[in-house]
Nucleic acid binder design. Sequence first.
DNA 1: CGATAAACGAGACGGTACGTCTGGTCTTGTG
DNA 2: CACAAGACCAGACGTACCGTCTCGTTTATCG
Lengths: 192, 192, 192, 192
Amino acid sequence: MAIRSEHSRQAILQSTMKLLDDREPGSVTIQQLSIERIARDAGVSKTTIYRWWPNKAAVIIDTFLENHILATPVREDLPALEALREHVVSLAAVYDGHEGRLMSQLIAECQYDPSTLDEFKKHFWHPRREVVSRLIERAVEEGSIRGDRPADEIAEQIYAPVYFRLLFQEGALDRDSMTTSVDLALAGLAPR
Amino acid sequence: MAIRSEHSRQAILQSTMKLLDDREPGSVTIQQLSIERIARDAGVSKTTIYRWWPNKAAVIIDTFLENHILATPVREDLPALEALREHVVSLAAVYDGHEGRLMSQLIAECQYDPSTLDEFKKHFWHPRREVVSRLIERAVEEGSIRGDRPADEIAEQIYAPVYFRLLFQEGALDRDSMTTSVDLALAGLAPR
Amino acid sequence: MAIRSEHSRQAILQSTMKLLDDREPGSVTIQQLSIERIARDAGVSKTTIYRWWPNKAAVIIDTFLENHILATPVREDLPALEALREHVVSLAAVYDGHEGRLMSQLIAECQYDPSTLDEFKKHFWHPRREVVSRLIERAVEEGSIRGDRPADEIAEQIYAPVYFRLLFQEGALDRDSMTTSVDLALAGLAPR
Amino acid sequence: MAIRSEHSRQAILQSTMKLLDDREPGSVTIQQLSIERIARDAGVSKTTIYRWWPNKAAVIIDTFLENHILATPVREDLPALEALREHVVSLAAVYDGHEGRLMSQLIAECQYDPSTLDEFKKHFWHPRREVVSRLIERAVEEGSIRGDRPADEIAEQIYAPVYFRLLFQEGALDRDSMTTSVDLALAGLAPR
DNA sequence: CGATAAACGAGACGGTACGTCTGGTCTTGTG
DNA sequence: CACAAGACCAGACGTACCGTCTCGTTTATCG
């Protein structure tokens, strides 16, 4: 019956990570990355990759998951609003470098394949939105913001500028800018 | 001497538009589109395309400009805030269809080529931001919103959700949703 | 693993032969023949050709070998001198038609690539020279000609006019002319 | 009325010669030589070349004529047989270098175009054959060889090995080898 | 001497082919 | 039966020339 080779799987994911890492020599963009290249680099046959992943994007998503990309924590010890600011600031900080480039390229790939978009949202967007929605609900409980808007709507309003700046490479992703951005988004939500 | 053939130029841009139009049979995504295909379809030699455009993305941008893609007007007869809402709503309406798919794919291409991003911003984002910034300044003059924030910052805050929804294909782009979104963005800017 | 496809190889060689055959409609010269054309005609990808042959000339040489071009026999039942005449006459007869045109074009290609020349000589000239040298040695043994000259030298003297007439398309390649030519070449070699 | 520009004509022929001269850097074979390249190198427009020459080969032949290629003289002061040997030896000496490579490539081109072959024979082969035929007739008059064979036939027999060695790049073109070759060709023609 | 007509440089054009690359599929042993 | 190895068809890449075709711009002759 021959079971799936864990060794091959690891080699594939590691090669993918290495090839996409722009701190390595000979790194490539997601667009330039090919199954052929991964197979060659991992010492694996193309068939093996095609057997277990439907396309390049799926391999990349698995790679990112394997490499714990963008697991941004939430401070439970802070007041909700401050924890929210911290969360967004630290996420933006991560996006402001190598992993940000990867994310923007992954979002680019999503524009060409619905199932990739689904996977992306499932693994990278929805969990994050969930976290922020929880924080907002906590802020409402703490009386820091009004509770008359859906939390998801607010979460989007807070997050959208992050992705906007990432994809348009315009507007800074540093602590000050992001704090300002979050505050602006929340400005109209102060309790009456 | 030997002047550029307007006929060829038109044929190239029209073929590009047709090939990218998902209402046509045999349409393709920007990723799938190739110079070879455009040349074949336009009855033009590849050389002619390479002579005048550096790459596929440049042809596409010219095509969009030629086809007045996303030229969204501003109502001068309305109060600034209302004109702003109308502008965003009508832009979102355009993004909510065929042209939206094209734009999201173009933004995707921008992730792989800085000069494409520059062109994109120059032709499609900055003009729009300018329009909105003007409206915000007018709104300040009209006393509808406070004037203690840079107009560009507010413009970004208003626009970011539009692009977010476009790229993440999540959250509606209809009139009600967009009005809500704009109002949320402006909520904290009411004059004291 | 993954062994070479005999089917593709055959298709390539047959298409090449067909394309070069001036009795077929749409035939081309060796100069006009392109890898692209062979691939198209054979229903094979260019990669497959480039994988197995270094260039056009190599494909053509293989094609000629496969099609037994210019395999001229030697009569063992005749006296050496007569067998020699017969051999040259029959070779010239072959050169006096379609296969002669192909050979002259192949020799033309040899002027541009040393390795093609080597292959040509290995497969088409040296075997023939060998045959004639043998015949000359036999003629010496039979006492028909003197033995004080190297056989290869005499072989060249006999053969040179054949190639000269082929390439210059001057001087006939028929039985009488070739017999005269051979006799002239051998005239000075009669035993004393 | 504008008369043909001698300046352009010269520039074209000189560039052609330079490009074909393998002692120059960046030299090319006749096959690699293109009208485009000549025009660029000569600072002339392609039109001008196409206006005055039907094809590449014609330019090359004119170039060779202009550069006195292969004008091999005949010694009138020597006995016919010796002058003949000298002539062949000195021609072979010229063929044994740079100009020989050019000639063999020109003969190659002739295999693809009858009119080029005609021009080649008219300018390079027939004059030479004429010279040799005259020498043979003189040799007959001098009583050095028999007169019962057509001079042209003998000329071919003498010349064929030269072209053979040139094109097959086999067999030396030095003085000794060529003398031997001529003597072998004439061996059977000694007066009875 | 000014009109005219050919020759010129420049270079755009539709084509064809180059040799390379990658995609995704299929085939053939090996362990 | 998963795997590596890799052959296969398909087709795009960007470049080089092909030979044709305008373009203005000389430049020489002729009216």
